[in-house]
């Protein structure tokens, strides 16, 4: 009896979710990392691979609107969820956050930038008027080794005021 229940409660090797607005059905092991699914299975290479232990934020994506590290997220945890990668932002035109990074020098080598922009998107969605402390906390999981963060903070502040002025 218990073995029958065990079999019934086991995840099959498929994942059904929405990625950048498109319904997706994939045959993947339930513990496969979302990072690998995005980059290797779907060729969505805008999501970057770096530390692979949830420290650097290069692999940041939105899951149901919340920022998460795709290197720490397993396939079964994404089932039925809506995932947004950097490719899903500004697919038709440059997202205002991306534009602010361009104008304020929010990047140098650019490797951390997709993750940074995803974190800013999550921040402004949940908190349109963040304080300096809120910005620091929201971005503390994204590491940049080039800019010294000055340009990034300016970009976020500009995105905040842009959003304020256009609403």
């Amino acid at each position: 009896m218990i073995h029958k229940i065990l079999a019934e409660r086991r995840t099959e090797m498929d994942l059904e979710c929405e990625i950048n607005g498109e319904p997706i059905s994939l045959d993947v092991p339930p513990t496969r990392r979302l990072l690998s699914i995005l980059r290797d299975d779907l060729q969505l290479t805008g999501t970057k691979v770096s530390c692979e232990i949830g420290r650097c934020g290069a692999c940041m994506v939105l899951v149901d609107g919340q920022q998460v590290n795709s290197c720490l997220t397993m396939a079964y945890q994404c089932d039925g969820k809506s995932i947004t990668t950097i490719e899903g932002l500004g697919s038709s035109e440059v997202d205002p956050i991306q534009q602010c990074f361009l104008e304020e020098g929010g990047y140098q080598c650019g490797y951390c930038t997709p993750g940074m922009i995803i974190s800013v998107k999550a921040l402004l969605t949940h908190n349109p008027e963040p304080s300096a402390e809120d910005i620091e906390e929201a971005m503390s999981g994204n590491l940049c080794r080039c800019t010294g963060y000055g340009g990034i903070i300016r970009s976020v502040q500009k995105a905040v005021s842009l959003r304020r002025n256009t609403q």
């Binding site: 949830g54 934020g57 940041m60 974190s119 999981g141």
Partner: peptide, 12 residues
């Protein structure tokens, strides 16, 4: 809690 990891980790 605020001192644990970052928001992206704390969301999960």
């Amino acid at each position: 809690i605020r001192s644990i990891a970052a928001i992206s980790v704390r969301n999960v």
